[in-house]
Amino acid sequence: MTIPPLDVARILYEPAAAAHPRGQQILDRFPGAERVEVASHWNIPDLHGDSDKVDEWVRTKRGVLVIGVKKSLSVRPNGRSGDFIAPSHSNGCAMACVYCYVSRRKGYANPITTFVNIEGVAATIERHATKLGPKTEPNQVDERAWVYDIGENGDCSVDALICDNVRDLTALFRRLPNAKGSFATKHVNRDLLDYDPAGRMRIRFSLMPAELARTLDVRTSPIAERIAAIDDFVRAGWEVHLNFSPVVVYDGWTSDYTDLFRQVDAALSDRAKEQLAAEVIFLTHNEALHEVNLRWHPKAEDLLWTPRWQEAKVSENGAANVRYRARIKGKLIAVFRDLLAREMPYCRIRYAF
């Protein structure tokens, strides 16, 4: 069974967020939580950038919630997980995946920040989609609809435990004739089965070999539970894709991924297989996060930090990352593609890198 990802004991709130109806909904949902006023959801020294908080990593993610007002509402082009990245309705996560890039961007434990001005987020998406008009040329993201990733900086399945932001966005896409929403998740939230997305929301279940996930995907739903949920979500009107991310290379990885593909294949109905697609993202790690992880979860770094296969990579935001060496990464991607084609030939890969 999944461990409940939230046990909110402390809420840090901007005054404007607490006064907003969505903020009131959140405060009412957690009446026993301590309430602490903060000037800014972003600049909280008690949470962000304090490496000494590493010893409280999991406790912070489980028990702390921040509510704020999203100041910048903009849509960014993407082309991979979606055509566009929607304005964030949240940032951070209650789960503790050790490779998480969001932790690299915003402090250390980085619990969930929920933005209460969901009406502004929705209006921004609607204006953008309306201006675009129909999608006339299919691409790898989708053949007919403009797809907006609504979960770039968090996990919407967990966000839905906090308030109705995800439900509201589902209702938005249900009525937009030319657009879909999309998000990746590692948490099975069966409340989402009642959202009636009518095919206008794409949920991407993140998968990796179960033994690997037990080490790396801390506080997430077990892999078997994620696989078992796929058919249920398809029947409930969700479009379901797979998110093989990150693909981690280690001795025996091809055998473990073969087993994973066979488990998925055995669990899927014909209807689920017909609509299935996948994205494949090989591991990118980060030197600073590596040093932090060594202090709270060193076993994970035996898998993530493998210099014999990795090389330095400076990211677009200037971070010092590491990735699999370019001269072998192409071969690794080809091996993954061949394995998936052999075991699940109906599952097209939308993109892989």
Rank of each mutant, 00 (worst) to 15 (best):
A160L: 00
A213E: 12
D83A: 11
D55V: 04
E37A: 10
K180L: 12
G49E: 02
S206Y: 05
L260R: 09
N189D: 04
K135G: 05
L304K: 07
P222A: 13
I11Y: 01
A18Q: 02
W42I: 04
A17N: 00
G82W: 10
D7L: 07
F282I: 14
Q140Y: 04
K273P: 02
R226I: 09
D7F: 02
H290R: 12
D7R: 07
T258N: 08
S157K: 02
S221R: 06
L169T: 01
L212K: 10
D265S: 08
C93Y: 04
R59S: 15
L132H: 09
F84C: 14
L193I: 06
F261A: 10
A129F: 04
V64T: 15
N178E: 04
I150G: 08
R219V: 06
S74N: 11
D50F: 08
R308P: 00
K61W: 05
R144C: 09
Y351S: 08
L47E: 06
N178L: 00
S103M: 07
L161V: 00
I26D: 01
V248Q: 10
Y250A: 12
I223C: 15
A9Y: 02
K273V: 01
D302N: 09
E311K: 06
N317K: 08
W238D: 11
H285E: 09
E291V: 07
Y351E: 08
F244V: 14
W309N: 13
L268C: 14
E152C: 09
R204E: 15
D159S: 10
W42K: 09
A277M: 07
F244A: 15
E287G: 05
C347Y: 01
Y324D: 07
K313F: 12
Q310A: 14
E301N: 13
D196F: 02
Q24L: 05
E137A: 09
L242S: 14
L294V: 02
P209D: 15
E287A: 13
A94Q: 02
L169R: 03
A319Y: 11
E287T: 09
G82N: 13
N117P: 01
A341M: 05
D232P: 01
I85F: 15
P246Y: 08
A228V: 11
I227A: 12
L65V: 12
H290T: 06
E34G: 10
R144P: 00
E56I: 02
H89C: 06
Q24C: 03
A224P: 04
S72V: 12
D7P: 00
